[in-house]
Structure formats: structure tokens, C-alpha cells
């Protein structure tokens, strides 16, 4: 029997990384109408890692989960096409704060009896970088955040973490939460037959109340504005002029 029965991989639906999003002119939010949506890139890396673990025979099953509206089934189907076995949509129309997301994921972990959660270190919309750590805390289990390498031995995982000082290696006992950094792997492309096959894979819909999760909003949004723009600079045409410009600014 494989070391890990079920790996849970949460997939967040976010604005595609190549889209340059802007604040709406009235400051009421981001201009997201008609914008391309994708799986959060860090979550895609998480799913790729889970697939590789299963391909090595170290896990039996991969469940992908998303929290949001019915539109999130697009990303879940994308995850199934990549190779996940089944999907769960936690359907809600509310925008949830990371703590509520972590509570929801904990409920899924317990429901699915998962021994490993692999997820992105941050979503590229909220840029919070919180949910994995919160889930690990609520679960009372280890966290290996910002992982760029992951291997299993016995009932423990060894993770290499990308930290400010370099690369840190830690060992964590399973069950555990791993959050992914960009260099963990390069996600595979899905092929057309896989997309067709994914349509037949199980996709279950549950609600927050099915999971006994009460959403909680703590932070009140008072405004959203575009960042301050840097004034337009100058072009110089030679190194000599560059040195002169730096001297004028008393930088050298």
C-alpha cells in the first residue's frame, strides 16, 4: 500500500498571470470583466508535485478542491485533465478571508482523511501567503512552506525551502501541509484526450454549511486604489552620460 492514501490539492481560480489587471476607475474593485481566468500558478505546481508523488507509487489518490462559484468547475476540470482523480467544489458566492478558507480546507482534510495537503504558497490575486500556514496550525500539523524540493522517507517528508538566506532543509512528520515555490517543478501540459477523459471524472459539489464552516469577515475594505506612479525617467545615450547623470544625483 502506498505511503499516502489521499493528497488534497486546493486550486484557486485567479486572474491569469499574464493579464495586467487594473483598479476600476471608481475604485470599487479590480476590472475583471471578460478577463482570462486560470488556476493559480503556484497551485498548478502543487498539483504537478502531487501527480509525481502518485506516479512514484507513494500516493494512491489525488483530490482537487476549489472554493467559490460554479465557474470554478472550469479550474477543477483543468485539474482533473492534468491527472487528479476527483474534484470537490465548495460552492459559495462569498469572498472568503484566508482564515475561513483554512477552516474549510481543514473540514475537507478531515472528511477525506487526507495525509498530505500540497498548495500554492500564495495566490497571485490576494498575495496573502497565509492559508497553508493557517491550515497547518488549525490541524496541529507541520508546515513546509515555500518548498522547492520534496521527498518522502518512511512517514516523514524532507523539504527544501526557499528562504531569504538561501535553501533550508527541514524534515516533517506526516500528515503535513506543503506550500509550493516556483522552482519545485514545471507543470505538464494537458492533452486533448485527457481533457475529454476529465469530463467523466467525479466532481462533487458541497456547501460551507455541509462542512459546518461559518464564514467570518474580520477586515473591512475601505478602498482600493492604483499604486503611485514613478515619474518618467530620462534616456542617456552613452556610459559617459550615465556616469554624469549618477553624479548629478549624488549617487556616486
Amino acid at each position: 500500500m502506498a505511503l499516502i492514501k489521499t493528497i488534497l490539492v486546493p486550486l484557486k481560480r485567479v486572474v491569469d498571470a499574464n493579464v495586467r489587471v487594473r483598479v476600476k476607475p471608481d475604485g470599487s474593485g479590480m476590472a475583471l470583466e471578460g478577463v482570462k481566468m486560470s488556476i493559480n500558478p503556484f497551485d498548478e505546481i502543487a498539483l504537478e508535485e502531487a501527480l509525481r508523488i502518485r506516479e512514484r507509487g507513494e500516493a494512491e489518490e489525488i483530490v482537487v478542491a476549489s472554493i467559490g462559484g460554479q465557474v470554478c468547475t472550469q479550474q477543477l476540470r483543468g485539474g482533473l485533465a492534468m491527472g487528479a482523480d476527483r474534484a470537490i467544489l465548495v460552492e459559495t458566492g462569498q469572498d472568503l478571508e484566508p482564515l475561513t478558507v483554512a477552516r474549510t480546507l481543514l473540514a475537507l482534510v478531515q472528511r477525506e482523511e487526507s495525509q498530505l495537503v500540497i498548495m500554492g504558497k500564495q495566490a497571485i490575486d490576494g498575495d496573502n501567503n497565509q492559508t497553508g500556514q493557517m491550515l497547518a496550525a488549525l490541524w496541529g500539523r507541520p508546515q513546509a512552506t515555500f518548498a522547492s524540493h520534496l521527498r518522502f522517507k518512511g512517514s516523514a517528508a524532507t523539504a527544501m525551502r526557499e528562504v531569504d538566506a538561501g535553501l533550508e532543509v527541514i524534515e516533517v512528520d506526516l500528515p503535513a501541509v506543503v506550500t509550493t515555490d516556483l522552482r519545485l517543478n514545471e507543470p505538464r501540459y494537458t492533452k486533448l484526450p485527457d481533457i475529454l477523459k476529465a469530463k467523466k471524472k467525479p466532481l462533487e459539489t458541497v456547501t460551507l454549511s455541509d462542512l459546518d464552516v461559518e464564514p467570518e469577515t474580520q477586515f473591512r475594505v475601505l478602498g482600493i486604489e492604483p499604486p503611485a506612479q514613478r515619474p518618467r525617467g530620462v534616456r542617456v545615450s552613452s556610459v559617459e552620460e550615465l556616469v554624469q547623470a549618477l553624479r548629478e544625483k549624488e549617487l556616486i
Binding site: E97, L99, M134, A136, A137, T145, R161
Partner: peptide, 19 residues
């Protein structure tokens, strides 16, 4: 920093609050 980003959400969740 990677130190604080790793730690503070875990602290918040133990306190039962957002971050």
C-alpha cells in the same frame, strides 16, 4: 520576510484571528 511569512499566519490561526 520568509521568516515572518512562515510564522505569522500560524500565530494568527492559533489565536483564532485573521492576519
Amino acid at each position: 520576510t520568509t521568516f515572518g511569512k512562515d510564522l505569522m499566519p500560524r500565530v494568527a490561526a492559533l489565536l483564532g484571528v485573521g492576519q
